[in-house]
Design a protein around this nucleic acid. Structure first.
Lengths: 127, 127
DNA sequence: ACAGTATATACTATATTTAGTATATATTTG
DNA sequence: CAAATATATACTAAATATAGTATATACTGT
C-alpha cells in the first residue's frame, strides 16, 4: 500500500476517527454511525472505500456488518495514531472522546439492551 | 496547524518530496524544479500553497526565492519523514534519490558554475 | 531604460472527491 | 411470505483540487 494513499485516507478527520475507533476493536456500521454522528450513507461509503484501500475488512453477523482493521495493521497507521494520541492536540481530544463514547455505547447495547454483535460484546465480557 | 492539513499536504507525493528536500536544507525554486523535474508553474504553486499552510517560509536573495521549512518543523512532519525513510518502501527510495540528486546539483552550481544562492552553497562549504 | 533570469499570479479547463436522495440487497423474525 | 432492521449501491449535484497557458512582477547587470 502506498504511503500517499494512507495519508489521503487519514487526511479526512472522519476517516481518522474511524481508524481510531477500530483500533480499539471491531464495530458494526450502526454503532460507528452513532458514535460519530454521521448519516448511514456516509458511514457506509467511507467504510467501503477504506476496505477497498485494504485498510479494513468486514464480515457479516446477522444483519450487522462488522468492520475491523486488517491484521497486521499498516505500520504507518499505527505510528500516526500513536503520535496523535500523545500530541495533546485538538484532534487528539476528539479521538479520546470517541473512545469514551464507544465504551459507553458497547456497555449499553451489551448489558442493557442485549442487542450487540457477539464479537463486539466480547470486548467487554473478557476484561 | 491541524493534523488533517498536514496529511493532506504529504498525501501528494510531490509535496512530500519537497519537504524531504527542504529537510536537508533551504533551496531555491529553480533547483527544486530541476531535482523534481516539474514545470516552473507547478513548483511555484505547490510551494506557495505549502507556505500559506504554514509549513514553509521564503526569502529573496537576488532573483532567487529561497524556501525552507519553518523552524521548528512541525512534529508530525518530522515523525513521518523519519518513518518513511526507515521503511524501505518505494517512496523511500525516491526520497533518497532526490537527496542524492540534490547533493550533486548543489555541488555543480556551487563549484562549477559558481551560480548558487549563498545560503544554499554554505551547506556544502562548511561540511 | 533594456534585456535576461527567476518567480508568481490570473484565468481556465479538467479531474477528483464529497454529499444527498432514492433505492436495492441481505438477513431475521413473526 | 411480509415487515423490520442493517447495510450497500446508483445516480446526481456540488465542492475541491490539479494542471496548463499566458502574463505579470521582481531583480540584476549592461
Amino acid at each position: 500500500m502506498e504511503a500517499s494513499e494512507i495519508y489521503k485516507c487519514i487526511a479526512d478527520p472522519q476517516r481518522l476517527r474511524i481508524i481510531n475507533l477500530l483500533e480499539a476493536g471491531p464495530l458494526c456500521v450502526c454503532h460507528m454511525q452513532e458514535i460519530l454522528e454521521v448519516p448511514q450513507v456516509k458511514m457506509s461509503k467511507q467504510l467501503s472505500s477504506m476496505k477497498q484501500l485494504g485498510l479494513l475488512e468486514a464480515h457479516r453477523e446477522g444483519t450487522w456488518m462488522i468492520y475491523k482493521l486488517v491484521d497486521p495493521v499498516e505500520g504507518l497507521i499505527t505510528a500516526n495514531l500513536c503520535y496523535l494520541r500523545e500530541a495533546a492536540c485538538a484532534e487528539c481530544n476528539q479521538l479520546q472522546r470517541d473512545l469514551t463514547k464507544r465504551e459507553k455505547l458497547i456497555l449499553k447495547v451489551t448489558k442493557i439492551e442485549n442487542d450487540c454483535p457477539q464479537e463486539v460484546c466480547q470486548q467487554i465480557a473478557c476484561c
